[in-house]
Amino acid sequence: MVRITAWRRHPLARYAVLILALALVGTAYATFVQVSRPADAALASGKADDVARGKSLFQAHCASCHGLNAQGTSTGPTLIGVGAAAVDFQMSTGRMPAADPGAQVPRKPLPSWVDSNSISDIAAYVQSLGGGPTVPSGEQVDPALGDAAKGGELFRANCIQCHNWAGAGGALTRGKYAPNLNESSPTQIYEAMVTGPQAMPVFNDTTITPEEKRNMIAYIVQVREQRDPGGFGLGRIGPVTEGLVAWIVGILALVLAAIWITAKKRQKS
């Protein structure tokens, strides 16, 4: 007992306790978070015409999950009929090749063998297997050609329930999430709508026309590039960060002011 009390009074004790507490919190946090490892080092790229090159790349990098002929395995779905748009979306965002079979495959930096050539080769190969949505043209996704106000109405009707009003993203069930749209290129946004990657539903061209999709892209791009006129945007996620700021900045600043106002200097005798 005496020893414990002595230990507690040690000048370093408070730091020890603090570090211990921090370590505990950190460990607890780490166990909650899904860890994502960077992709394996890249392999060399193949040669031949598009489809053939694509096929050899596919067999080298994708077949272990999707099967030698893209027919799908227990770890990866079939790619027959998903179309070039799906390949372009998944690979250009770095989601494929996937590093880790978690609840959801995250966006990540591209491995070194993945570039626009290797993507279009594999896309051509997958397109040759069973058709499907193709990669949109530059004109189809040009935000300047869209009507942002009309797109905004569709965006609010179909997208913000998962991706948030400003495309900031949000949580889904069981560890899945809707990613934020700030890094997505107009082409990727279009491809995501027509292919429905991972948990995202499909918005095909016959129900939401390509022109309407371009309007939505125009809205997304315009709003994300627009200045926040009221100061820092606080992540544009609404009242949660506002409440934090009110307490941490507002109340703290006023408490400091109160301490200064009421502080008394001791008179030296």
Binding site: A157, Q161, W165, G169, G170, A178, V223, G230, G231
Partner: peptide, 19 residues
């Protein structure tokens, strides 16, 4: 610090909701 940027939220309709 921007607060309640209503222009980003859009007009109300009981059919829509944001994450």
């Amino acid at each position: 610090a921007q607060i309640n940027p209503i222009w980003i939220y859009g007009p109300y309709t009981p059919a829509d909701i944001s994450a």
